Computed example of a mutant assay.
Amino acid sequence: MQKTASGVVTLPSWMKSVKKLYNTRSGGQYQPDDVALAFALSLRFHDSADELRAPAYRLVDKVCLEHQPNMRRLAREPDDAEVFDAALRIINRLCDLMEYGPGTTFVRNGDQHGTDSAAA
Rank of each mutant, 00 (worst) to 15 (best):
L97Y: 12
C95K: 00
L11Y: 09
R73E: 09
T104K: 04
C64D: 12
E66C: 08
E51F: 15
A38T: 01
T4V: 06
F84M: 05
L52K: 15
W14Y: 02
G110K: 14
L88Y: 00
F84V: 06
F106C: 03
M98D: 00
N92R: 07
H113M: 03
T4G: 08
T10M: 09
W14L: 01
L97F: 10
A81E: 05
R25F: 08
E77P: 07
I90W: 14
L65R: 08
P69S: 07
L52I: 15
D111K: 02
R73K: 15
Y100V: 02
P69K: 14
Q112P: 02
G28F: 05
T115D: 09
D80L: 00
L11C: 08
G28I: 10
F84T: 04
V107R: 01
Y100S: 00
L11E: 04
E51H: 13
Y100H: 02
R108D: 03
S17A: 05
Y30W: 14
C95P: 00
F45P: 00
M71I: 03
Q2L: 12
D61H: 12
E99Q: 04
R108Y: 03
G101R: 03
E77F: 13
Q31L: 03
A120N: 04
C64R: 07
E66D: 11
F45G: 05
Q112V: 04
M71T: 13
A40Q: 09
S13I: 06
R108T: 05
R76I: 10
Q29T: 02
V107Q: 03
L59F: 12
S26P: 03
R58C: 06
G28W: 12
F45S: 05
S13C: 02
T105N: 01
L59Q: 05
R76C: 09
G114K: 11
R58K: 15
H46N: 15
L37T: 08
S42G: 14
